[in-house]
């Protein structure tokens, strides 16, 4: 019974956690990673969105 409840809880939370990790990953790559090609491409958006840029 406990195992069933735990499985149910896990499968309920997992998609939300996965989506949050995916979202934070996208924000990190687009907004924070300093590789120069990425930095140059995202430059104006990074400034406008208030990320530390240079």
């Amino acid at each position: 019974m406990t195992a069933l409840v735990q499985t149910a809880a896990k499968s309920t939370v997992l998609p939300f956690v996965a989506a949050m990790v995916l979202g934070l990953g996208i924000v990190t790559i687009a907004g924070h990673v300093q590789a120069s090609a990425l930095h140059d491409a995202a430059h104006d958006v990074r400034h406008a969105t208030g990320f530390p840029c240079h």
């Binding site: 956690v17 989506a19 979202g23 907004g31 958006v45």
Partner: peptide, 30 residues
């Protein structure tokens, strides 16, 4: 080129924010 990339990255960043926001909303809905 420059403004096209701005458009692309703006969409990308707000999709990222959207994922975080919807995940938080959905969890609260639970």
């Amino acid at each position: 080129m420059r403004d096209g990339l701005t458009l692309l990255f703006s969409a990308l960043i707000y999709v990222g924010y959207g994922l975080v926001l919807v995940a938080a909303m959905g969890m609260a809905a639970e």
